[in-house]
Design a protein around this nucleic acid. Structure first.
Lengths: 201, 201, 201, 201
DNA sequence: ACTTAAGCGAGACGGTACGTCTCGTCTTAAC
DNA sequence: GTTAAGACGAGACGTACCGTCTCGCTTAAGT
């Protein structure tokens, strides 16, 4: 999604000789998609509106992104990239960083839209959900699980706790505060999360 | 929503003389709505389909429920009623019950649909969200907050913890496990939640 | 199609209680169809254009005329109604009238469009062709065949001639002159046709 | 069109240096056009389909035949070449041959498609029509007119008949029987036509 | 009993978005 | 400098729902 070039996304038919894809149109479409995602939400995002705002033919959108899900996933890609949890050697610091990553990502309004679109059964787009999980959720979750296991190994985290459960506490709580309740203030949240997981005061 | 009579819902124009509202049609519509909610999801729920399945004119649906949100909220009312957290005198028991209530409610497939429809910015229906919160979320949240405060008062919960934060831990974690990750197994989850909040092993 | 009222055409679902069909919209659509038929031809006649010009929703057109052919057939109905050949007692007069009917009908620009659309394999619309034949061609052809048979019976027409062949001479020649070569002048044509069939000078 | 070389058709950019025009592509395109004309009809003939079937780029088709009409006219050229009416010295034989030529030509399914496409106002392509007439209709018509005039001169044809009218009788009747009514059986038709024109039994 | 307002089924209507199709033009790379 | 490949803007296709509306029948409350 980032430095690697837009890599795996939007490579429809293998490009041959013909006219090269218009990067201008591509950028316009993605920009229009981002704008409309924020303005209208995922459900109300209409391909025809994207095309109109991007001043592009509807066919051009469909040519490159066969479904709304793929278009959104690519348009919002940068916003929903969360990365992985590093291994700093300090459980406390690892957990704080993990929390911070979640908070940062979830605080982006665009990410909120995409995450709910991927998660919600309201408009359950299985392909979108699967792609989202594979690309963004699993890598982070795996690295976070390793951080927790390191903490348990060092006895920084009370023994006997279930790793999967702690992950859900971490993710769920941040999800709840940032997206559901939509607390604007996230000051000190990462530290609280860390303390909770580590069983500190 | 329950025995008290369907109370505030579905009181469209002030009823005067004329023909009384057909309870049969009403029940048919709500049943059809529930069925289609599960089959199609919130977004794909079409009023015209509800009317067809209920063998009722589209007008009849619109007469009583001006928006899809209100129709859904009432149709799914019983499934999303969570009640309040009791005061048993035992912090441990109060918290276990509170967790259990969340788990039970969130485990209902219909509740999942409605909760996401209310929560998700994907189809942000502010009225639906507001009504949902006022009727179902706030009462439970208030009573749960009181239970936590009692626990803090009795020093059953480590001091210095933020009540609002603990509430979000509780709700968010259950939300994550039951709806997002969609773990079918909820065995022992309530006890884990209680222990986490109370700072036990 | 004529005085009898629009009779058999455009009676889609049997009308029940609901809102009555808007005669205004109906008339607007048919008028727009006629205009566009003359301006654009049958092939280039677009339902969306009809709707736009009639200031009507596209769905309204589709509701009543499921295909372009049916719409055109009804819109042009009056222009392509040819009637039947009368029995005046005089072979000469019957044949002159028959020729005149063909000439009159084929001379209408709208009829030309519809006839070719029905006839031409270029845009062979089998339904249109069949409906056109049943409603307009066959009745006339049958009555013209009877007129020729009466002429043969009275020996006004040279014996030994094939009735079907003479019919094709009649229709084909007028078709050729009025539609293919598009002679604007039809003066004396009916008399020439009559004389040819009757084997006169 | 025939041995004379494809003469006037399809000489777009002046043939000079560069890569010579691919005769293979040319033949493929014309063959594909013929096939699709029969399969789909003139209206439904899509340039993109021609290109696909000929395994050729759409551009290549457009380069050499700027319109669908010209492409069709050339592709079907051989089928619609009718030649001229000879002067055998016998009016009866000349007229029989003229009729036979019409019957043979009109009986070709491809010719039917092209003739209607040229004739029909449904898709009135003035250029196609004009080219068709200049190349195929007029030469035959002129020679047929001369044959009739010879017959009138020899008094083989009843005097006082209009040459143009008789031509239209000839063409129109065959058109009607072979294309409109689509009689498969043309046995004896040429003789009937001859007898009619000559005023015989 | 008579009136009359409302409930209700039925469905027409103007809109709008869908995803697919073909059009004819254009741009580029390969040969 | 022809060719293949194909991107592109344009716009029609026929379908699905939307939410509003206009009917005409039915029903019961209020007189």
């Amino acid at each position: 999604m980032t430095a690697a070039g837009r890599g795996p996304e939007s490579t429809p038919p293998p490009r041959g000789r013909g006219r090269p894809r218009s990067e201008e149109a591509r950028a316009d479409i993605l920009r229009a998609t981002r704008e409309l995602l924020l303005e209208e939400g995922y459900t109300n995002l209409a391909i025809s509106h994207v095309a109109r705002r991007a001043r592009v033919a509807k066919t051009t959108v469909y040519r490159w992104w066969p479904t709304k899900g793929e278009l959104v996933l690519e348009a919002a890609g940068a916003c929903i990239a969360i990365g992985e949890v590093p291994d700093t050697g300090s459980t406390s610091e690892d957990l704080r960083i993990a929390s911070e990553q979640l908070i940062q990502t979830f605080s982006d309004p665009m990410a909120a839209v995409v995450i709910f679109a991927a998660i919600s059964p309201a408009d359950h787009d299985p392909d979108l959900a699967a792609a989202f999980r594979d690309r963004h959720v699993y890598p982070w979750r795996m690295s976070a699980a390793r951080a927790i296991e390191r903490g348990l190994g060092r006895a920084d985290i009370p023994p006997g706790r279930d790793v999967g459960f702690l992950l859900d506490v971490l993710v769920g709580t941040v999800l709840q505060r940032t997206l559901v309740v939509a607390h604007p203030e996230t000051e000190g949240l990462a530290e609280k999360m860390r303390d909770l997981i580590m069983g500190l005061g």
